[in-house]
Nucleic acid binder design. Sequence first.
RNA 1: GGGCGCAUAGCUCAGCGGGAGAGCACUCGGUUUACACCCGAGCGGUCGCAGGUUCGAAUCCUGCUGCGCCCA
Length: 874
Amino acid sequence: MTDTPTPRGTDLPPAWEPAAVEPELYEGWVAAGYFTADPASEKPPFTIVLPPPNVTGSLHMGHALNHTVMDALTRRRRMQGYEVLWLPGMDHAGIATQNVVERQLAGEGLSRHDLGREKFVERVWDWKAEYGGKILDQMRRLGDGVDWSRERFTMDEGLSKAVQTVFKLLFDDGLIYRAERIINWCPRCRTALSDIEVEHSEDEGELVSIRYGDGDNAIVVATTRAETMLGDTAVAVHPDDERYRHLIGTEVVLPLTGRRIPIVADEHVDPEFGTGAVKVTPAHDPNDFEIGRRHDLPSLTIMDTSGNITAKGPFEGLDRFEARPAVVAALREEGRIVAEKRPYLHSVGHCSRCDTVVEPRLSLQWWVKVEPLARAAGDAVRDGRTQVHPPELAKRYFDWVDNMHDWTISRQLWWGHRIPVWYGPNDEVVCVGPDDEPPAGEGWFQDPDVLDTWFSSGLWPVSTLGWPTATDDLAKFYPTSVLSTGYDILFFWVARMMMFGLYAMDGKQPFDHVYLHGLIRDAQGKKMSKSRGNVIDPLDWLDRFGADATRFTLARGANPGSDMALAEEWAAGSRNFGTKLWNASKFALMNGATTAIPVPARDELTDADRWILDRVDALVSEVDTLFEGFQFAKLCDALYHFTWDLFCDWYLELAKVQIADGRVDATRAVLGHVLDTVLRLLHPVTPFITEVLWKALTGKESLVVAEWPTVSGHTPDAGAASRIEGAQRLITEIRRFRADQGVKPGQRVTARLSGVDEVGLSAHIGSVTSLARLNAPEGDFNAGASLEVALAGGSVTVELDLSGAVDVAAERKRLTKDLTVAEKELAQCEAKLGNPKFTDKAPADVVAKIQTRRDAAAAEIARVQARLAALPTG
RNA sequence: GGGCGCAUAGCUCAGCGGGAGAGCACUCGGUUUACACCCGAGCGGUCGCAGGUUCGAAUCCUGCUGCGCCCA
């Protein structure tokens, strides 16, 4: 006999209380060094760099989802024997952080200019030390298995060096240049923004039509920004537009200013739109700027950096939104307003940081010439070095990368990486590398601007590993394996990291896979937003439901590329699942489930044992396949279904019968093996509860560093599966009959089964009797009611002593329903089989299947009809 | 204006050429010595509309309607 270890279940607390144990478990993992990566390891590498959250930010559901994904991926790989590096950190979020600290200063009645640049930057560092990086602690609560020893910040010395290095390289390659163009300007942040930092929305404005010139010379233009007319330097019409042909080359007087401006012909004017004539304000509109360039028009800047009018005259000093109605009123006064449309819905750009309406502004800025970089970034995906999941989103990536405009990288801020360019007294421009001495002496000064935060976070996959130094980390862990992020920031993250990673690493892609998850929405599928009041705080869920439940909820909703709806009920459901797993494990342990006894040879096992072991095998390979395909929702469903519907609802119940029958050790071994496997498979998604249960089951150190399950290699026992499914069917039918008859679930009913041997279920009578709560007949058995259950190979008749009135009406209702279903099925099958086109053209196996279904339906009809006929009338 | 995606049970979604599925919600019954955060049984859908392809369409094609997203 095997020496059975003492059951361990009694060691477990009676209930799972995540909040009480999770922090301690987490700190234990960190202390044990499980998450610390070793570049000298012989194991194959698996690397994820965390898309750096904003230093001012705190954990929201989008993070929680993304972190769950990354943690699940890294935990599985660690269990599979990879040398895993998941590298954490934050970016310095130039505008956002500067805004936060400026607001703090404003509370003290100060501006950053009162402090001066140096003191202000010190103040930002102080702020960071005190308040920054809340999210890092929140990551611990989620259970993120990141390597804290490698935590990075984009403003760190090493990463700053990487920024300066890449700037110098790009500059020397002619891929960074300085130019005066129309850029997106935020008059509140008082800095330039890149295209993707501008969010467009359909806003209500006005469309005002203004007559320029008089008499035959008059021409009407329409605008939504009337105040910009102060900066007009031309009117443009299409060269083929008959209406205006006679005016081309002439001049009109610009109202309110008295300036004479030319009427020019430009191919890009749409004659169909409005009057077909457009006002041209080269300094305040990107299209107009292009027209101005083509026609050599002067550019008049009429606003300052805060959006106040600077044009001399009555409007000077007015904010642009005050100037707009003032200008319209003045024009109306002069009788020049031809039409006004209000409200007029049109697309307006807003600063993605502060929502202020962006002002196009002519300005001298630094740019990245993206064409060669973007082409390389596209090619890496085109030729499969980097794979996008789901692949549908690759198209969106190409659309963007292949049509990318040059990137404005200078920001008029103080917090960030200062542009490493010095200007000399004689218009010298010197780009300084990290190891160069900046030019000194009279008249030399450094560019005052800083770089876009994305310029440094685009380097993240290389700079965090030590680039430009050829470190061991870089050698071991680059290219990274997966980049995981929401599809909404595909352009921010993926494109920029791809461009810089490929450039810095001589064409070696920064990641092998890009996984794009969807956006979090509320239960109605609406976007979460503060104004809607439908935001769910992940910290609230962590408190109330625990990290595992939060993570499981998010992973279970994560279908690649599609958004997910969330509500508290979902989290409660996940918590319930955890409780179920807890109770089932506790029960198994109380009954001696163990991994210390090897699972006996197959021929010593019962049908139930072989069935559940085969299902576990199938589960392992299914979960593996789904993990490889980033199918988190499906793998969670598979685990949920197996655990609850197969393991708890059936195998545990069957195991009770087996143990009662004296099959103790084998059952303990099978219980132990199944539970062990399930806990391992669940661990990447729900690390905490599985850790506690697994330690109780195995007595080993930690599931974090346990091996990932593999399939046993046994050929599935189809016979066992079929018999178990037959027994399940029989049990369910009896339960259903009992429910129809109004028998209480707990009440034992005397029953006589016949036909059991013929369908091969003789070994399962005990299970059926137990799970259907039957008693063996003895003495005065009164078979008052009976049912017949059709199974593969025959049918089983169950006679029941209901010791009371049989509800014939309920039974008739049930049988009639069964009959209707069978008749419908028969009709459908016969219709197909009666169609010669079907029998000729459909594949033989499909035809055979329909024939089988027809025969089964016919038999079922006969059986049900016979039973209906045998029913007592009335 | 250009492009993309989605319309399947009350809700959120899976299925994407041969028997309409899951979770939650709902109904009925329940002190079944693991679990009421539970157990057992059930109800619920001409798969947005109209055409087409096919022996066969929720699944492929076209058009329409509605919703959403991205870009300009």
